[in-house]
Amino acid sequence: MTAPARDWAVRIAALALLLLVWQQVAQRLPAAILPTPVRVGAAARDLLTGGELALAWGQTVTQVAVAMALASVAGVGLGLLLGWYRPLDQLLSPLLGALFLTPRIALVPLIALWFGLQDLAKIVLILAFGFFEVFFTVRDGVRGMERSYLELARAYGVPTWRTLRTVVLPAARPYVLTGLRLGLLHALVGVVLAGFFLETSGIGGLIYNLGAALRTAELVAALLSVMVVGLAVNVGLRRLEARLTPWQVTR
């Protein structure tokens, strides 16, 4: 066997072992505490065919799309601006830093006061989770870019606007992609918490309701769906990064 094939055999064996242990432990416990993998599989099928999972994710996906569109515009815009223009960075960074250090969950009351509990409030909460990863990655990327390019542009009298478009933007592109991936992963935390603490809908709301009803097998199945989405986002966007900006080593 070749080395990668043997590695995969080891991995699959490890997974099988984990599932076996889970099955053995779960058989000795009440299903409300820990359902067996087989039961979770059946529950997943029920959630899928009953449409509950599709409904919840459908509500969530729209909110995430709007929030991430806003997060990328604001995060990339501010990141470019503050990374490039130091005085503005010094003016605004303490405030943004303070907001970043606040556990985002503490913004829930403020969001409820200003935006209610419905879709708009949830979009704002997801935005609060997604924005900072985009902003900080882009700002630090622009700040760390090769200064000699900028000096060269200035030496040749290239106008500010063109420098931004032809020098800064291309240099920032890999950071934009990385920032968007990290932001989207973070936004998933916001998605879940929005369902817990704002209106109980979407995938977070579904998880909350299943937990409250002690429907543990369905709960675990819903949690697994969150894991699959998180993993798909991470792996998919990493691939995209590698294809669009192959010269960049991804974080």
């Binding site: 080891v10 991995r11 490890a14 992963l185 543990t216 969150v226």
Partner: peptide
């Protein structure tokens, strides 16, 4: 590392905070 790292990476990229309702049950 070969056996478990991919699964640990998977855990790293998911919002584990979603597990809180399960923690309540346990």
């Amino acid at each position: 590392a070969v056996a478990f790292e991919p699964y640990l990476v998977a855990l790293y990229s998911v919002p584990l905070i979603a597990m809180v309702p399960l923690m309540v049950i346990w």
